[in-house]
Simulated assay, not measured.
Amino acid sequence: MKETRTKQNSGRPAPPPAVKLAGILGLIQGGAGIGFGIILIIREANGFHDPGAVISGYGTAAWFLFFFGAVALAGYFLSTGRKWGRGPVVMLQLCLLGVAYYMFTSGRPDLGVPTALMAALGLILLFSPQAVDWAATRYAE
Rank of each mutant, 00 (worst) to 15 (best):
G107N: 09
F104L: 10
W84D: 03
P13I: 02
I34T: 03
W63Y: 14
F64Y: 10
E141M: 10
S106V: 05
I41K: 02
R43W: 09
A53N: 14
L96R: 03
L27D: 01
P129M: 04
Q93R: 00
V90P: 00
A22H: 00
S10L: 10
A70N: 10
K7R: 14
A131F: 06
A61I: 05
V90M: 03
V19P: 04
A70Q: 10
A18R: 02
G75C: 03
A32F: 13
L125P: 02
K2C: 06
I24R: 09
H49F: 07
D133N: 13
Q29W: 08
G52E: 12
G31L: 08
F104A: 09
E44W: 06
L78V: 11
P88H: 02
R12S: 09
T4W: 07
V99E: 09
Q93E: 09
L73H: 09
E44K: 04
R43Q: 13
A53Y: 03
Q130C: 08
A119Y: 02
P51R: 07
A136Y: 14
P51N: 09
L25V: 14
P17K: 04
D110L: 12
P51E: 10
L25W: 12
L123H: 04
G122H: 01
P114Q: 08
R12D: 10
Q130H: 13
G47H: 01
D133S: 15
A120V: 14
E141P: 08
P51Q: 06
P129G: 08
I38E: 03
R12Y: 06
F66I: 11
F66D: 00
A116F: 12
L27S: 12
G85F: 00
G98Q: 08
T105N: 07
V113P: 04
L96P: 00
A14P: 00
L121T: 12
M118T: 15
R12V: 05
V132E: 13
F127A: 05
G37S: 02
R108S: 15
G52H: 08
F67V: 14
R82K: 14
F127D: 03
N46E: 15
R82I: 06
L73F: 13
K2N: 12
M91A: 13
G35I: 05
A32G: 12
V19F: 04
H49E: 11
V71R: 04
T115N: 06
F36R: 09
Y139H: 15
I38F: 07
S106C: 05
K7F: 04
P17F: 03
F77Y: 11
Q8T: 14
I34G: 03
M103K: 12
L123W: 01
G57T: 02
S56R: 00
A45M: 11
T4D: 11
G35F: 07
A45F: 05
G47Y: 02
T115E: 08
